[in-house]
Design a protein around this nucleic acid. Structure first.
Length: 364
DNA sequence: AAGTCGGGGTG
DNA sequence: CACCCAGACTT
């Protein structure tokens, strides 16, 4: 771009004019002309990281009911946050959400900071979210770059460099195009366009307010962009997972380590997740200290689950046990299935619950 | 720069 | 089935 004065109908003007007519109404958005609540903007932006609008909706409402202000959230136990977050995924977000609430309450007197740099210093807030909060909640002229905007700019300029390497180039373009006022509306407009018009496949260019500025639309090779680096294939890991049930109907749950995969969430105990097949006998031997030698058990339907970088096959084993034999196992609790909703069970574990509770299973 | 971190919707 | 999503954090 040049340093000349923008024409009257600049790119951002076209985008904003479209937004004034076509903006989607979303739970975290304010009415036109009204400043949104920074706490709502922050909460929604954290939830929306790598997560679709439809998925976030119910969680956003539930969190606002439970914690109306950042002060309420800062005062809550982390486990309550994790339980409410269960099913939404990327659980480090929930842990950082809690850390961030505590920091805002303690270091900023419960008032969210307005600048990009101050927001960047808070847990769970990276380059995208800092710019989004600063522009949407405080009308600061920050350039927002999410996956939608990356795709739109890559098409407009037909950027042939593959992501993620092209990120710097795209950010530079975004900064050139971002208006000095209404940067938040401009960003939300582009994200709406990306979600509903400039989609990854079958983009609806005839409905796009900026197709006239789009080099890819001119050459009719929209789906070529953005170019992305090839992805690694996902290996498969396997394990047995144990549904250990006492005669009063309680089932053993264990809390995972705070760090790493499903950090801080509850699980049923399992053998180690590994590529190699394991026999049922070896799996039970792994827990021999806690099981009687002649224990009978049911083998339930396999649970399939895919994480970001591997597939997982879990084979549930349902066994009758006594609590006494697990007295020395750390981080465990006994819970009746009707109370599972009060615990931080990730979706993988709810799949295990369904497998155990349906069908007969094979008696072995 | 590459790897880790969920889950659901879509084609 | 692979691909995508209002990315952040670690190594």
């Amino acid at each position: 771009m040049t340093n000349q004065k923008q024409p009257q109908h600049s790119f951002s003007d076209q985008v904003l004019s479209w937004y004034d007519i076509h903006a989607r109404t979303l739970p975290w958005r304010s009415k036109p002309g009204v400043r949104p609540t920074p706490y709502h903007v922050w909460l929604s932006e954290i939830m929306l990281q790598q997560t679709t609008v439809a998925t976030v909706g119910p969680y956003f409402e539930k969190f606002l009911q439970a914690w109306p202000t950042v002060g309420h959230m800062a005062a809550a136990p982390l486990d309550d946050i994790l339980t409410a977050w269960a099913g939404l995924g990327y659980y480090a977000r929930a842990r950082n959400l809690h850390k961030c609430a505590i920091s805002v309450q303690r270091d900023f007197a419960g008032i969210f900071p307005q600048t990009r740099d101050e927001l960047l210093s808070l847990p769970g807030i990276g380059p995208y979210t800092a710019a989004a909060i600063s522009s949407i909640a405080f009308d600061q002229p920050e350039a927002v770059v999410d996956g939608n905007i990356e795709r739109i700019l890559a098409r407009i300029y037909r950027i042939t460099e593959p992501l993620p390497g092209a990120k710097k180039t795209i950010t530079k373009r975004a900064e050139e195009l971002t208006p000095s006022t209404r940067a938040g509306d401009y960003a939300q407009a582009l994200m709406d366009i990306g979600a509903t018009i400039c989609t990854p496949r079958n983009p609806k260019c005839e409905a796009c307010p900026i197709s006239g500025s789009c080099a890819a639309n001119e050459k009719l090779d929209m789906e070529t962009f953005p170019v992305k680096a090839p992805k690694k294939i996902k290996p498969t890991r396997r394990a047995f997972i144990l549904w250990l049930e006492t005669d009063d109907g309680s089932v053993l749950l264990r809390r995972r380590d705070e760090k790493g995969l499903l950090g801080g969430m509850m699980e049923f105990p399992s053998t180690s997740w590994q590529a190699e097949e394991v026999t049922t006998e070896e799996a039970l031997a792994r827990f021999s200290d806690h099981l009687s030698a002649d224990a009978s058990f049911l083998e339930k339907d396999m649970v399939r689950h895919t994480f970001t970088h591997f597939h997982l096959h879990l084979r549930p084993l349902q066994l009758p046990v006594s609590k006494e034999m697990f007295a020395d196992m750390p981080n465990i609790i006994w819970v009746k299935p009707e109370n599972f909703s009060n615990y931080a069970l990730p979706t993988l574990m709810t799949k295990v619950v369904k497998s155990v509770q349906q069908g007969q299973g094979n008696l072995l």
